[in-house]
Each structure stands twice: as C-alpha cells, then as structure tokens.
Design a protein around this nucleic acid. Sequence first.
DNA 1: CATGAATGAGAGTTCATTCAT
DNA 2: GATGAATGAACTCTCATTCAT
Lengths: 200, 200, 200, 200
Amino acid sequence: MRHETVDLIFNAAIEVFAESGFDQAKMDDIARAAGVAKGTIYYHFRSKEELFVGLMNEGVQKLIDRARQYLKLHKSPTDQLLALVENQIHFYVQNGKLAKLLLNEAFGTKTRQVQFRRKIGEYLQLIEEVMIEGNRLGEFQIKHVPETASAIFGAASVVVLQKLYSMEEVDPARIERDIPPMVETVRRMVLCGIKDSTYC
Amino acid sequence: MRHETVDLIFNAAIEVFAESGFDQAKMDDIARAAGVAKGTIYYHFRSKEELFVGLMNEGVQKLIDRARQYLKLHKSPTDQLLALVENQIHFYVQNGKLAKLLLNEAFGTKTRQVQFRRKIGEYLQLIEEVMIEGNRLGEFQIKHVPETASAIFGAASVVVLQKLYSMEEVDPARIERDIPPMVETVRRMVLCGIKDSTYC
Amino acid sequence: MRHETVDLIFNAAIEVFAESGFDQAKMDDIARAAGVAKGTIYYHFRSKEELFVGLMNEGVQKLIDRARQYLKLHKSPTDQLLALVENQIHFYVQNGKLAKLLLNEAFGTKTRQVQFRRKIGEYLQLIEEVMIEGNRLGEFQIKHVPETASAIFGAASVVVLQKLYSMEEVDPARIERDIPPMVETVRRMVLCGIKDSTYC
Amino acid sequence: MRHETVDLIFNAAIEVFAESGFDQAKMDDIARAAGVAKGTIYYHFRSKEELFVGLMNEGVQKLIDRARQYLKLHKSPTDQLLALVENQIHFYVQNGKLAKLLLNEAFGTKTRQVQFRRKIGEYLQLIEEVMIEGNRLGEFQIKHVPETASAIFGAASVVVLQKLYSMEEVDPARIERDIPPMVETVRRMVLCGIKDSTYC
DNA sequence: CATGAATGAGAGTTCATTCAT
DNA sequence: GATGAATGAACTCTCATTCAT
C-alpha cells in the first residue's frame, strides 16, 4: 500500500494544480492543503515537476481504467466507441479540474508536457484500437485513424470545458442536466465520421 | 496607422507567449525579441496581462476576419460550415503558436482568461449563426447548437495541435501534407452531426 | 517677470510634492497637473531635486515675507514674537501641504534636506532676532536663544499638523474654528518661556 | 522569547529606515545589514510596510514604557510633566534615528502613517492624562489639553532634531552637553503653559 | 521653447528548493 | 520520516531622465 502521507499530498496536489495550473500552483498551497510541512513534499518527490507528472499520470490512468471497464460492457466497436465518448464526458464533468489541466498542460515542449502527452497517448491508443477493430470487421471505414481519434477526444473535451466555464458558478445539478446534450452531440458526430465513405 | 513600436512588441509577444505560455513568458524576453527596452513595453501596455489580452484579441480577430471572408465565398450553410472548418485548420497550421495559446489559456477563472473566452465566443457565434440559418432552411437538423459549435471547434483545434506536437520538429512541408486528412476527418464528422436526426 | 510655464510647473509641483512627499511624487503627475509635457519640466529644471529645492525655498520665503509684514505692525519684541507665532499657525492652516513637507523633509543628510534646512534657518533667524532684541531691551530673559526658537517653531508646527491629520477629512470651516485654541496654547508657552527666570 | 532572526531584522531595519526614510530604504540594505537573505525578511514580514509599522510601534512603545517608569518616580502632576519632557528629550538623543522617523513619517494619509500616528497618539494620551489630573487637583489650568500636549511634544521633538542636524557630524559628547539647555527650554515653556491663566 | 516616446537601472516581492534539527 | 526557517535567483513593474523632432 502506498504511504499515507503520499496520498495526502496527491489529493491536495490535484486540487491545487487543477485550480491554478502548473505555474500558478504553489508548493506552499499544496502543503497547506495536504496538512503537511513543505519539506515533507520534497521528502517524497524530487520536484514540483515530478509531483505534477506523477499526478497527471494517475489522473489519466483513472480515465483509462474507467474506459477499459466501459469497453468490457460492449461487444461491437460501434457501441464501444460510443461508450468511450460517454465515459470521457462523464469523467470530465466529475473531474472538471483535471479536464482543464488536460488541455492546458498537454501541448508544449517542456519535459512535463511531453511526458503528459505520452500518457494521453495511451488513452488515444484505446480509441484507435476500437477503430481499427471496427475497420477490420467492416463496421467502420475510417481512413485517418489517429486524426479521427484526436478529433473525437478534442470535441468531447472542449464541449465539456466550454460548458463548465460558461457558467458563472459551477452548479452540480445544472451540469448534470447538461450531460445528455453534450453526449448526443459528440455521439452523432462520431457515428458519421466512421460509417460510410461518401459523406453522410 | 498603429504605432510602429507597438507592432514590434506585438509580434515579439506572440512568439514568446506561445513558446512559453503566459506564466513562463518573461517581459525581458519579449523586450529583447522586440528589440526595445523593457520599459518601452510598459509605456504602451499597462501590464503583462493587458499585453496578453490585446494580443489574444488581435489573434482571434484575425481568425474571425478570415472566417468572414470565407463565408462570403459560399452560399449554402453546408458549404459555409465546411469552409469554416477548413479555414480554422489552415489558420491553426499557419499560426501554430496562437493555436496552442487558444487552448492553453482559454479555460480558467482569471480575468485574462474570461476576457479571452469572450473573444473566442465571438468566433463560436459565427459558427452558430451558420448553424441556425441551416436549421431554418431545413438544411440542418441541429438540436444543440452551442454544443455542436464547441465540439467542432474542439475537434478542429485538437486535431491540429496533436499533429503539431506529435512531430519531433515542425516540418512545414510535412505539416502541409497533413492538412487534407485533418480537414477531411473533421468535415465528415461535421456533415453527420448536422444532417439527419436518426444517426447516420 | 518669470516665465509663465515655470509658474505653471511651480504651482503644480507644490501640490504634488505636498500631497505625496518628495519620494512618492512623480514627475509625470507634476507634468499632468501643470498641463505641460514631462520634457518641459526638464527644460526648466535640471532635476527633480532642483525643482523641489526651488519650490521649498519659495514656500518658506512666503512664510518669511509674511512674517516680515507682521513684524512691522508691532513695536515691542513681546508683541512681535506673539505675532510671529500667530502668523506661523495661520500660514500652516492655509498651506497645510507645505507645512507637512516642512517637517517631513527638513531633517536628513541629503543635499536637498540640508539646503531646505538652511532656508528654514532663515526663518528661525527672524525669531532669534526678535528674541535678542527683547533680551537687549530687558523685556526677555532668554538664556538659550536657538533652542527656544526651535521649540516655538516645533510647537507651532506640530500643533497644527496634529490637528490637520487627526481630522478624517479636512474641513475648512472646522479648522478655522480650531485656530484660536492653537494660537493661545503656543502663545502662553512662549510668554513663559521668555519672561522671568525663576519659572513662572 | 521572540525569534532571533526577527530581532536581527528589526535592529537592521531601524538603522536603515532612519538613515534613509521609508521610501529610500531598500530591502536589500536591510537584509545585508541584518546578515540575512532578502527572502528571509519576507518570511517574517508580509511587506516593507508591515515591517515598518511593526518597527515604529516597537520604537514608540519603548518611549511609552520609559515614560511610564518616569511617571512612577514622581507624585505631583507638575513633576510628572517635567519628567515626561526630560524623558522624551533623553530618549530622542539616545534614539536620534527613531526621532527623525517620528516626525518624518508621522503625518500623511497612507496606511502606515495613520497607524503610526495612532501609536504616537498613545504617547500623547499619557501626557494628556497627567494634564487632566493636574487640572483636577488645581495644579494646572490647561484650557486646551490636546493642543497643549501636541505643542509640548512638538517643541521637544524639534528642539532635539534641529540640534542633531545642525551639527556637521553627530558628536556624542557634544550632544550630551547640549541636553540641559534643551530640557530647560522646554521645561520653562511647559511650566507657563499650564500654570496661571492671565499669561505669565 | 516644447514635446513625449524611449530608456534601463533598480525596486519590492515571490517561491521552488535546501538542510539542520 | 517529517519539519519549517532560510535562501537567492528571478520576476514584474516603476520612474527619473534623455533626446530626436
């Protein structure tokens, strides 16, 4: 089992990083939120960057794990792809802070960004695998698999974030009601993007 | 005509901000890149934040202006929507640095982010207007206009950025060849998302 | 006649310096208050310091000139001394901002402070001359002339400033009513300080 | 016991602030004088202003504490008042730097000045209490207690500062010899100001 | 005489990181 | 394992002064 203190730090860090972004997040705030001394963080993590990377990997891993669960519930690639979209949107709504970091910190040339993108790549891989299987079974005719995966990922991401940040204050009940339109929107896009070859 | 020095600063700032993000960008670097003294920037802009907001507004305005040009070339909402997608992808490829900032700095609660999102909202508005007109003419059956606009915007954004940052080094010739698959991918998604109601 | 622009600058500078003190006063503010360009100030004055010294000299000179007028109205040294006190208090009330600078900028080792103190010394000289004449005529028995002059000057200064700054907002009517008690207070102190030798 | 480092900083700060005034004092200089890093000051004080206010409060508190000691040594209000004057002058001579700040930074509308004036008000209160008691016992006939307290405070302050800054260099032996005339001067003023009503 | 854009040295403040306890 | 006082490099922003027009 992971050390208890590390959990404390992780939980605090995800809040603070997501609230402020990597640069604006202060180790002081993380320490205070975790209820430990600042030195303690450095006892467990070499640097702010290492803490961040560990955190992001864990966050994306959760998304991946949930996605894997969803995949098992469906047989056909079509259903699986739709399930992935639904999962991603639900996950974003439930982890709005992480979602923001996913877009904010994913692009760039810094080490942490490259590492983070690699982890996101694992998730995109999952989508691509379903697509390839669908192509193989003749269920899809996707010509540009990586592009299509990115597009779906981006559509789902921005739909949720735009919704989250267009509200004055995040109202859990309200956002819950907003999920179905978002899911349906992306779902419809996905379905066309993969089905036939001579534009819908 | 705008003052020459301000142009110098603007051009330098877009480079530096895009390279490093808002927080990591240093006013010293912007000044050096612009070939002016640091104080000169502060003579023309009240703060780093004001410079950034001015810059982003100008950048998004360029995207909007180009989009308006494209819209004039087409009559039917369908063609107009596809033109908007194509325009956005081309614009991103040509202004990769701005594109990155568009996602990186758009979400958050800080003043500059709220202002920036408002400007992006102007662009989304453009998409939505085409959608509403298409709905009116019976060409589209879009149930959730804002969500669909966000999804298209997000799909086009992430497709390009993922491509740009998956390459070791940005190779202009290579990226030029990559445009058509990206355009086609999003175009297909768009076409389904708007055409008929009982999934494609 | 002094150049018109110089007057503009002088009048603006006294306001700004008195409002903010030497260090906090900005040449930009003075220029704006004077309605001239910043460069214009430097056309007429070598530096901020030179402007300040010129200004202070002029301010104290006004106090001295008024004092000289008052002195002419009275014959006996006793009446003259009391007139000086009354003059100083009235002058302070009417030029509260200058009064503040008089204490704020008078003590220190910087060139401008030394020069300023020298000018204030001219005013103290005036007091001392009356004292010496009073001593000669047997009207006073002042043992320590410079100390006594300083004490009177200090008493009058602090009484007014303490009053001015103890009020939430400076109310001209209110402060006008407060003059007599201040004058009487210092006047009584003065009278004893100079009359007999075995404590009053 | 207060933290050792804070003492280091306090002692250095009083030197530097008094030497240069609030605005000209540099945090770098204070840090160097204290033998700590600049960041260390900010670990203990939120800002330059907070450091200054803390310092001034402590300085005036010392004056107040000493004054309270002096008051205990005397019974009659007359003796007590004279003791206060003597104490103030001695204190100023021994703490010339603080004395200068007392006048330089006491008047103005900035937060630190208002707070500082409030602390000085505590000292003036002490004087006023003695005056009121003297009035009650019939020993004094002071009509304007606050004005008289201010006047005495101002007289004592300016007498010392004028003396300190009229010397080319501060010579401890010389200034020691100058104390009696200063004390006597103010003492005589005080005695009249409070004794009888029909001018001395 | 007058202007105001440009300058750059220098100020206060922040914060990731270290290390003696 | 854990602490938190101490650090100092680096940052944004200020403003007196200059000078070409």
